[in-house]
Simulated assay, not measured.
Amino acid sequence: MDFTEKFELHECPICGGAGLMEEEDHGYYVACLDCGSYTGTVGYKTEEGREQAAEKSAMLWNTGKVINSAPGE
Rank of each mutant, 00 (worst) to 15 (best):
G19M: 12
S37G: 09
T4I: 14
E51G: 00
G19R: 02
N62R: 09
E11K: 15
E24R: 15
V66W: 02
G17I: 14
Y38G: 00
A70T: 14
S57E: 03
C35H: 03
G43P: 06
Y44Q: 01
E23C: 12
A70G: 13
S37V: 05
C15I: 14
R50P: 03
A54D: 07
A58F: 11
G49N: 04
E47G: 06
E24L: 08
K65A: 13
A70N: 10
G27K: 04
S37E: 00
C35V: 06
S69H: 03
G49W: 05
C32V: 07
V66N: 05
A70K: 15
E8C: 04
F7D: 02
E73T: 13
S69K: 01
N68C: 12
C15N: 06
G19S: 01
S69G: 01
G17L: 15
A18Y: 08
R50V: 05
G36S: 09
E51L: 00
A18E: 09
K45W: 01
E73V: 08
Y28A: 03
A18W: 11
K56W: 11
A53D: 00
L60N: 09
D34H: 09
Y28C: 03
G36C: 11
C15A: 04
Y44V: 11
M59A: 15
P71I: 05
P71D: 07
G27V: 05
P71A: 08
E73A: 14
G43C: 14
C35I: 11
M21C: 06
L60K: 02
C12V: 09
E5F: 01
M1Q: 06
E55C: 15
A53Y: 05
K65H: 14
L20E: 09
G40Q: 09
W61G: 02
T39F: 11
C12R: 03
E48Q: 07
M21S: 11
G16T: 04
C35Y: 15
C35P: 13
S69T: 04
I14Q: 04
L33I: 07
L9S: 05
E11Q: 10
I14P: 02
M59G: 11
L20G: 03
A54H: 13
